[in-house]
C-alpha cells in the first residue's frame, strides 16, 4: 500500500509536466487548428535560458527564471508573427512543416551551444524532503503539483469569465463568424500562442526544479505524452487536459513501478488509440472548443 501511494505521488509530479505542456498546446490547437510541433521545445528553451542567465552569467535564480519565462514568450511571439502569420492559414501542411522546422532549428541551435549534452540544472529553491510514514516527497514536488493546479484551473476560468477568454472561445469555435462580429482574430491567436508559450516556459522551470536536468531534445519525448493527453482529453479542452494529464502520470508511474519501464509509453498510446476508435472527439471534447 505504501508503494502504491508512493507511485501515485510520483505520478502526480510526472502528470503535472504533462498538464503544463498540454494546456498550452491544446489551447493553440483549439483556437487556430495549429499542430504546433515546436510547442514542447519552448519548455526546453526556457530551462536553457534560465541556466545560462542564472548560472553562466551569474544573474541569480530569480532573474534567470524571469528571463527563461520571457524567452519562451518571446520565441512564441516570434513563431507567431514571423512564421505562422506568413503562411496561408488554409495550408495545414505548410503550417505543420513550418513548426517542424522551427522545432528542429531550436533544438539543434541550443544543442550546439551545449555540445549536444544533457545539462544539470540548479534548483529554483532548496527543496525540503519529507518522509511521512515511509512516503517520500519534496517541497519541489508540492510546488509543482500546486502550481499546475493553479495554472490549469486559472486558465480554464479565465477562458470562461474574462472578455478576452470569451473572444478566444468564439474564435476557436468559428473563425469566420468571429470576424463578422469584428473580433480581431489575429490578435486573439497571438495572445493564445504567447500565453501557451509562457505556460510551457513556467512548466519547464518547475519540472527542471524536480528533475534537475535538461537536454536539448527533451521535447521529442515530452511531445508524445503531450499529443496523447491532448487527443485523449479532446483537442481544445483545458479542463480535460488537466484531468487526463494527471491521470496518465499516475497510471504510468504505477505501471512502471509494478510491471517495468518497457510498458511506460504503451499506456498513453493505447489510451489514445482506444479513445480515437470509440470517441474520436476525445473524452472531454465537443469538436473544436476551448474551455
Amino acid at each position: 500500500m505504501t508503494y502504491f501511494t508512493q507511485f501515485l505521488i510520483d505520478g502526480l509530479a510526472i502528470g503535472s509536466l504533462y498538464v503544463l505542456v498540454t494546456i498550452g498546446f491544446t489551447l493553440v490547437f483549439g483556437v487556430m487548428g495549429l499542430l504546433n510541433v515546436a510547442h514542447a521545445d519552448l519548455y526546453m528553451v526556457a530551462v536553457f535560458v534560465f541556466l545560462g542567465v542564472a548560472q553562466d552569467l551569474h544573474f541569480g535564480i530569480v532573474l534567470g527564471a524571469i528571463a527563461g519565462i520571457a524567452a519562451a514568450g518571446l520565441v512564441g511571439a516570434l513563431l507567431f508573427w514571423q512564421v505562422i502569420r506568413r503562411i496561408d492559414r488554409n495550408r495545414t501542411l505548410s503550417m505543420f512543416v513550418a513548426t517542424l522546422g522551427v522545432s528542429y532549428f531550436l533544438e539543434n541551435l541550443v544543442a550546439k551551444f551545449v555540445q549536444f549534452r544533457t545539462e544539470a540544472v540548479p534548483p529554483l529553491f532548496q527543496s525540503k524532503f519529507y518522509d511521512v510514514s515511509n512516503l517520500h516527497f519534496s517541497t519541489g514536488q508540492i510546488v509543482l503539483v500546486g502550481s499546475t493546479l493553479i495554472i490549469a484551473v486559472g486558465l480554464s476560468q479565465w477562458l470562461r469569465r474574462s472578455n478576452t477568454g470569451k473572444l478566444m472561445r468564439a474564435v476557436s469555435e468559428n473563425t469566420h463568424l468571429a470576424e463578422l462580429v469584428a473580433i480581431d482574430t489575429v490578435r486573439i491567436m497571438a495572445i493564445a500562442v504567447i500565453l501557451a508559450s509562457v505556460i510551457a516556459g513556467i512548466g519547464g522551470l518547475l519540472v527542471a526544479n524536480t528533475t534537475l536536468s535538461v537536454n536539448p531534445f527533451v521535447a521529442n519525448d515530452v511531445s508524445l505524452k503531450m499529443f496523447a493527453v491532448a487527443v485523449v482529453a479532446g483537442v481544445g479542452s483545458v479542463d480535460g487536459a488537466l484531468v487526463v494529464g494527471l491521470f496518465l502520470g499516475m497510471i504510468e508511474s504505477l505501471t512502471v513501478g509494478y510491471f517495468g519501464s518497457q510498458w511506460e509509453t504503451v499506456i498513453g498510446l493505447g489510451a489514445m488509440i482506444i479513445v480515437l476508435l470509440v470517441r474520436p472527439q476525445g473524452l472531454f471534447g465537443k469538436r473544436l472548443r476551448v474551455g
Binding site: 508524445l224 499529443f227 496523447a228 487527443v231 498513453g268 498510446l269 488509440i273
Partner: peptide, 9 residues
C-alpha cells in the same frame, strides 16, 4: 498528431 505520437511511442 496521432501518427507522430504512434511513431514516437
Amino acid at each position: 498528431t496521432v501518427t507522430i505520437a504512434i511513431g514516437q511511442g
